[in-house]
């Protein structure tokens, strides 16, 4: 991969910082009237999620990171590794539990997801923004309650626990926003 100069760097670009792949969040040009020019670059580490802001001299370069996103399907986990398949190439990839991280609670077999590869190796997996999943466990709701106020915890077939309105029952299918782990609506299969 090549390098990017500070003046080419835009939000969304992927670079290597301290050996880790990072995504650019913001790049601000800083120059006092009579002083040297700098760029204050904010990045998010794609491995740890940590956000760092660092000041570079204008004209310095950052190494580009070979990071790509693939449309993939979650296949299964064997107790140690989670297995995925690229939808386009049918190539299979596996990741350990730590790398799958929080996303695992949204993954049921055959589910769509996005695999992020760094130098061809899976770095992270992201669930779609909205998923449709079945409730496998929740307390019966109070009779007559039809509002969304209050709510109760419900365990989903993929393992996640979300708050649902009292009227939603065990065995029902619901649509969930995975970014905030929030119930959206009842859904059909």
């Amino acid at each position: 991969m090549g390098v990017y100069s500070t003046n080419e760097i835009r939000g969304g670009m992927k670079v290597v910082i301290d050996g880790d792949p990072c995504i650019i969040i913001d790049n601000e040009f800083v120059k006092p009237g009579k002083g040297q020019a700098f760029n204050r670059i904010k990045t998010k580490n794609l491995k740890t999620g940590r956000v760092v802001e660092r000041t570079y001299k204008s004209g310095d370069t950052l190494e580009a990171a070979d990071v790509i996103d693939l449309e993939a399907q979650y296949l299964y986990n064997d107790g140690h590794e989670w297995h995925f398949m690229c939808r386009e190439s049918f190539e299979q990839f596996s990741m350990n539990e730590a790398a799958v991280g929080e996303t695992k609670q949204w993954l049921k077999e055959q589910a769509d997801c996005v695999l992020t590869l760094w130098n061809g190796v899976p770095l992270a997996v992201t669930a779609p923004n909205f998923v449709v999943l079945k409730i496998i466990e929740t307390d019966p709701g109070v009779r007559g309650d039809t509002s969304g106020g209050g709510g109760k915890p419900a365990k989903l077939e993929s393992g996640a626990v979300v708050r649902v309105p009292l009227f939603v029952q065990e065995g029902e299918i619901i649509k969930v926003d995975t970014r905030h782990g929030e119930y959206v609506a009842r859904a059909k299969e």
């Binding site: 800083v30 006092p32 002083g35 040297q36 700098f38 802001e53 660092r54 000041t55 570079y56 001299k57």
Partner: peptide, 21 residues
Amino acid sequence: HIEITTVDNDRNTCLHLLLTH
């Protein structure tokens, strides 16, 4: 006090960085 890649041995540059950051 500043997360920065390199600091020049230059009085005015240091003062400018302290002022801006």
